[in-house]
Each structure stands twice: as structure tokens, then as C-alpha cells.
């Protein structure tokens, strides 16, 4: 369904918790237990505070439509490439057929694909926004996701817009084999082409961002933000433990961890994300102006001041 219908449907929905470890003993959907501090929260309150725990600041995982709702100037989102969806090019069937996984993902998410893209305004800035949805085969990138990302970047270039990507993904989609792996190269190429046009690209790493999505377009942004507590990385947690034969430190590969190691620009609480992105765009949106703008040469700032 088009995302506009989704928003409508959402208004009349029953509240559901997006956390994986939802408590079983609470009335269905109205109350949720914070997985971090164990406080019981009213979903209606969470809705008002961007799904962040009032007691401990835990960021609940949110889906793509909710993310869009939180991020864009109200009423400005206009979905693009809504009809672009996955097929089963390899007739993948190990343990369970890919077609079955796709059908399930569509039913569970109400989305045609693992990413929603569209035009929007953020703080008044025209952008193309892409948001991965983890409910759709773990937000994995196959041909359709890669193509939608590529088209999002091309659209931004055509229309002089910034790009914002919000990632939640397990990585490349195994069921499309090499076609998925190559989407990493394909999306990376598009980031480069946008950059050469002088248009800004901001990414937001949400929980979790892993594998081939991290190792391609997600970390190639001009400015990389991440949400508090988000798990970010390349290899799977279990594979690393098996390789190094020891359990991993508790904060290993959180957003905060990578901020400490200098791999991203800032960890930004969800409540401040929209204003932070809008302000960043205020700085970068003029970057389309040639670097050597008129008069720039006579404004060389030296230690002693302007010369």
C-alpha cells in the first residue's frame, strides 16, 4: 500500500510494541515494558516522546513509517518507487523458499520492500529520504533495496536535494546471492556521484546496522549520526566470538563505542535528531556553491586574523 494509506491506517491501529522481547503478561499492546530498565510504560506516552523510555532513555526500535513521521516536516513526505519490489532471481530455497520469506515480510510489515524512499522537507530543506525497515527480512539489501537506494541518490542529484538515509539492517540479502553483494558497490557508486555534484548526504545508523549495509552506503555519508545504543558493525556477533574464542565487551560496537573510536560524528538522541539534521543541512546545503566562490581568495584567514 502507498505510505499515505499506511499513515491513515496507523491512526486507527492497535498499539503494538516494536521491541523483540515484549512482555507477555501485560495487556496486549497498550503497555510495554522497557527492556533496559524494566519500567512499564504506556504506549501512548511513548508515542509522544519518539519511542524513548521516559525513565532510562532506552531507544525502542521503530519501523520505517514511524521514523518518517518523526523525521520529516509534517505532511511533506511523498513516496517514490513504491512499486519496486523483490523477485526471486535465484529460486532460492534452503530451509525455506525465498518467496515465502518475501510474502511473510510483506504481510508482517505492510510494506512492499525493506526500504521506503521519498521526497520530503526536513527543517524546510528539500531532501530525498530513505528508511530501512527491519521487519522486512531484517532490513536486508537485495536487488530491489539497492535499486531504490540508487534511484533515491539519482533523484536527489536531478532535483538538487540532500540525501538522508536511516539504516536498520542485517546486511546484504543472502537469498539473492551475488546480486545482493553487488548492490554494495552499486550504492557506493551512487554516493560518489552525489558527492561530485556537491550535494550533502547524511546517514543515521539506527539499531542495528550490520554487514553489507554498514560496509557500503551507510558509512559513506558526509556526516554520520547514530542513535544511542544502536548496534553497528560488519561481522556478526557470534562469528566474532567463535573467531576470537572469547566473549565480547558489553558496549562492543554500540554507537557510543564507535563514537569513541572516531568512526562517526555524533550519537544523537532521537528527540534531537530532526533538529540536528536540519541544522547540519543549514551548514551543508550551501555546499553546492563552487568552493572558490567569488571573493573567497581575498579572505584568507591567518593566525593574526583576516588578511
Amino acid at each position: 500500500m502507498p505510505i499515505s494509506d499506511w499513515f491513515k491506517a496507523r491512526e486507527g491501529r492497535k498499539y503494538t510494541t516494536t521491541s523483540a522481547d515484549a512482555p507477555g503478561d501485560l495487556p496486549d499492546g497498550v503497555w510495554v515494558k522497557c527492556p533496559s530498565c524494566k519500567h512499564t510504560l504506556y504506549q501512548g506516552d511513548l508515542d509522544r516522546v519518539a519511542d524513548v523510555c521516559l525513565h532510562c532513555g532506552h531507544h525502542f526500535d521503530i519501523d520505517a513509517p514511524r521514523r518518517i513521521e518523526l523525521l520529516v516536516d509534517e505532511g511533506t513526505f511523498e513516496e517514490t518507487e513504491a512499486g519496486l519490489t523483490s523477485v526471486d532471481p535465484l529460486r532460492f530455497n534452503a530451509a525455506k523458499p525465498y518467496t515465502e520469506s518475501l510474502a511473510k515480510a510483506k504481510a508482517a510489515s505492510g510494506l512492499p520492500e525493506a526500504i521506503v524512499t521519498g521526497r520530503a522537507l526536513v527543517g524546510g530543506h528539500p531532501v530525498v529520504l530513505g528508511v530501512l525497515d527491519f521487519r522486512f527480512i531484517a532490513g536486508s539489501m537485495g536487488s530491489a533495496v539497492g535499486e531504490k537506494i540508487a534511484r533515491a541518490f539519482r533523484l536527489a542529484k536531478r532535483e538538487d536535494r540532500a540525501v538522508i538515509m536511516v539504516t536498520r539492517s542485517g546486511g546484504a540479502r543472502m537469498q539473492e546471492g551475488m546480486l545482493s553483494l553487488m548492490q554494495m558497490a552499486k550504492t557506493a557508486a551512487e554516493v560518489g556521484r552525489l558527492a561530485s555534484a556537491g550535494l550533502p548526504y547524511i546517514s543515521v545508523l539506527a539499531n542495528p546496522t550490520m554487514g553489507g549495509v554498514t560496509a557500503s552506503f551507510a558509512v559513506l555519508a558526509d556526516v554520520i549520526f547514530a542513535e544511542p545504543g544502536a548496534l553497528v558493525g560488519f561481522a556478526g556477533q557470534r562469528i566474532i566470538e567463535q573467531t576470537i574464542h572469547q566473549s565480547l565487551p558489553k558496549n562492543f560496537r554500540t554507537a557510543e563505542y564507535f563514537e569513541e573510536y572516531g568512526m562517526l560524528d555524533a550519537v544523537v538522541p532521537r528527540g534531537e535528531l530532526t533538529t540536528t539534521i536540519a541544522l547540519t543541512l543549514d551548514y551543508l546545503a550551501g555546499a553546492g556553491v563552487p568552493a572558490a566562490a567569488e571573493g573567497a581568495a581575498c579572505r584568507i584567514v591567518s593566525a593574526g586574523g583576516e588578511t
Binding site: E81, T85, A144, M182
Partner: peptide, 12 residues
């Protein structure tokens, strides 16, 4: 770039 662009099988 064209080679990369062409990679992928999907429906629309």
C-alpha cells in the same frame, strides 16, 4: 557506472 547500475533483478 553503467555496469553497476544494471545489476539487479526486481519487479516494478
Amino acid at each position: 557506472h553503467r555496469r553497476l547500475e544494471a545489476i539487479g533483478v526486481y519487479d516494478e
